[in-house]
Simulated assay, not measured.
Amino acid sequence: MVDPMGLENLHIVDLPEPQAGPGEVVVAMKAASLNFRDLLAVKGGYGSMQKQEKLIPLSDGAGEVIAVGPGVSAWKAGDRVLGCFFPDWQAGPLRREAVGTDLGGGYDGVAVEKRVFRSDALVPLPDDLSFVEGAALPCAAATAWNAVIEKGGVGPGDRVLIQGTGGVSLFALQFAKMAGAEVFAISSSAEKLALMQAQGAQHLVNYKDEPEWGKAVMKLSRGRGMTHAIEIGGAETLKQTMRSMAPGGFIAMIGMVTGPKAEMNLPIIAMQEFKLEGATAGSRLSLQRLVDAMAANGVKPVIEDKRFGLDDLKAGLEYLARGEHVGKVCIDIG
Rank of each mutant, 00 (worst) to 15 (best):
K76F: 02
T101G: 12
R95W: 05
A111G: 09
A98L: 02
G71I: 12
A98G: 03
S119R: 09
N146I: 03
A142F: 10
L58A: 11
S48V: 14
G105E: 05
K51L: 15
A144L: 09
A135V: 13
L125F: 06
Q52G: 11
D120E: 09
F117E: 09
V72Y: 06
S48M: 14
V123N: 10
P126V: 03
G105W: 06
E64C: 01
K51P: 06
P126Q: 08
K54Q: 15
A74L: 04
A74K: 12
V112S: 14
C139F: 14
L103I: 09
L137D: 03
F86G: 05
A77D: 08
G63H: 04
Q90H: 13
K54D: 15
P138H: 05
G106M: 01
D60V: 07
L122P: 12
A121L: 03
P124G: 12
R118E: 08
D127V: 07
A91S: 14
R96M: 04
F86L: 14
E133M: 02
L137W: 06
W89P: 02
W145H: 15
G47N: 12
D120A: 06
L129F: 13
I66Y: 05
A67V: 04
L103W: 04
D128M: 04
I66E: 00
I66F: 03
D127Q: 12
E64G: 03
D120C: 08
D128P: 10
A62I: 12
D60S: 05
P124V: 11
D88H: 05
C84P: 11
C139Y: 14
V112Y: 08
D88G: 01
G92A: 08
P87V: 01
S59C: 01
K51V: 00
S130G: 03
S130H: 00
A74V: 09
A111P: 01
V65T: 11
I56D: 08
P57Q: 10
C84L: 08
R96P: 05
V123S: 13
I66N: 01
G106C: 07
V116L: 08
V72G: 03
W75E: 02
D79F: 01
C84R: 00
V110M: 02
L82S: 01
G105P: 04
D127H: 13
